[in-house]
Write a protein that binds this DNA or RNA. Structure first.
Lengths: 209, 209, 209, 209
DNA sequence: TATGAATGAGTGTTCATTCAT
DNA sequence: GATGAATGAACACTCATTCAT
């Protein structure tokens, strides 16, 4: 009976194990260059089994986003909703969280993946934009808006400014994946410096003592 | 005689035409996903002809970089060497030039290309890093150093800060290539806003009364 | 159930069937001129299936040698080890066996194959030399040495003489493969005549009364 | 005018230069693996020029045989016709001549070439058999017949025995081309040993003192 | 449910041959 | 006559997907 339980537990974990394997490999090699063979081997199942749970490579990607990225956006939304105090602090914490949950986690391959393959797999790009990017962009914009409202931040386009906040993070994440072998970069210092400079640029009032 | 001239002109233009075709397709679909067949067809030649001028797909890429990207770096180096006046102005002009010669030109696909394929084609990444990225990074860092030296800019790591200057430009360029269909972005405004914010953050003196 | 058995038998036979097909085609057309497509078709499988069992065309050749030629060398070694009686008889039997197991069997294409392609595929030549030729040469040389030791044969370089023993067999085998259509040769008589002449030349004692 | 003469001389030599180049390369790499590009370059002409003189690769081969191999057969025929004295000496001299004019000359690649490619280019094999092999075989057989007639040689099938005489020479020539890199052979000693053994086997009367 | 053997379309690269100059 | 740019068919090898067991 213990046997049966273990098996059933494993059975229920199969999709999750496959998604983890796919995430790791997509991140490492990109969507097109990842062979389903490898995903299966890494997940400890056979190639056929992958098709048992996911209709195609593209569906596998979508499921992966749904299962592993969207929840992070939701957590962030919850975090923002709960937060009290200056927008400045909230913004810094969002950046730090982005960096921890994406830049330095198993998700670090996702940005490169999406941006690199968007051209060849528009449906994936559309899906990711709708589920992740638009939502996350709005969330950050809302925080900036809050800061402008309270007079903490200089007036600006919140959506655009939010993207300027995220851009270096995405840049650093992709860099780590691709060029760090040939041109190393201290990404932690990069993020710190970005926060410092960005706030310096955004905060109101400081420069007129 | 016009006939002769046309043909001869065409013959000499072949490599350039092939490089243009390759650039367009590499940028659109990535290195791996671009078929040489297509490059040939787009250049109006047969597949064999491509191999008449370029030994392999990788060489085609390298030639493309050498012929179309490196000269831009050299132009920028020349521009910096010639420039007199405040570093701040020079920096802004470098950003504007980057945006014009890369972000809004036929080269706009190159950043995505390099970052997306670096993992699977390390030799290409190494080559590009050596010929373009390292040189350009140093150039920008030198301008920032100059500004720190004259007291215009706050003290900072010039290389890291230079990358923070470029990161949003790269981000915007890739975005245009990949996600703008699904989530439009006013890239011109984005660049303006970036310059404004970045200088605000970088300039010295204002916050110390 | 007969169904099941047939399939399973077939599955296990696949590599062997592919090797047989490869042998036949390599022998007929040479290594370079044989298309893997054809090997697959002749084995009744698809091209992909060949790669399921053999990593490359070269590996296919090596596996073929290992599976079909090396065992013959081993059989001959065993035969020599077991043999008692005059070296002369042993030598004749080795020649007859060579002729039966190579010259007149499905292996008859191998000598031409190896000699013809050695120049263009040095790794294959190296492999075949190591696994087959050197071993077989030593074996024959050892028999000749034995005969010299017992005084049956005239003193001579055993390795060189061994090659002189094999040379006409190889020649006849290749001839059958290539020129017999245009210039027929009674290879059986050729071999008999060779044995007769060679022993006549090699045997000691007769001319020294 | 000297200019004109030099040019005209060169012009007339073109086909010969191309044939020499083709011979060298066919010998080195085989018929199929030799690129016409290389032949042209080695002959100091352009690829198109080769087609000016030879309708195709196969025709090039045939012309080569006609121009460079057939004359050697004719020389041998003349030599045999002129010779007086024991057949034994003549036979030895024919072997030595074969070795010098084929085994150790620029023609040394021809035997491998013919035997290796006969299967894939039957027309070449037919042509070569008719022009070279049959004639040479008859010539040697006639010498052996002469020796049998005079009682020098033991009675035997002269054609078959002639082939046994040539077989090791062909074998040694091919070996030099293909396997000598991996299993060296002293071909000169090989030929000497062959002559010794062969005559020992063929000569009449010696063994009954 | 799970397997993994089998498929076959797809792509980088080569090279004999052609032909406009 | 001589060139060499251009062609395009050919081939080894890969991999997403299927399906009999």
């Amino acid at each position: 009976m213990a046997e049966v339980q273990r098996r059933q537990r494993r059975k229920e974990d199969r999709p999750g194990e496959i998604l983890e394997a796919a995430l790791a490999l997509f991140a490492e090699k990109g969507f097109a260059a990842t062979r389903l063979d490898e995903v299966a081997r890494r997940a400890g199942v056979s190639k056929g089994t992958v098709y048992l749970y996911f209709a195609s490579k593209e569906e596998l990607f979508k499921s992966l986003v749904e299962a592993m990225v969207v929840p992070e956006v939701e957590r962030a939304e919850f975090f923002v909703a709960q937060h009290e105090g200056p927008a400045r602090e909230l913004l810094v914490q969002l950046v730090r969280q982005w960096w921890e949950t994406v830049g330095e986690s198993h998700l670090c391959g996702v940005p490169k993946l999406v941006l690199a393959e968007a051209g060849n797999f528009p449906e994936l790009a559309r899906f990711y934009t709708e589920r992740v990017i638009t939502r996350a962009s709005r969330l950050i914009a809302s925080v900036i808006e809050r800061g402008i409202g309270t007079g903490e931040f200089r007036p600006c386009d919140p959506l655009l400014t939010g993207r300027l906040l995220i851009a270096p993070l995405v840049f650093a994440t992709i860099w780590k994946q691709s060029l760090s072998r040939f041109d190393a970069m201290d990404t932690a210092a990069f993020v710190d410096q970005h926060i410092d400079l960005f706030l310096h640029g955004l905060l109101a009032g400081e420069e007129t003592p």
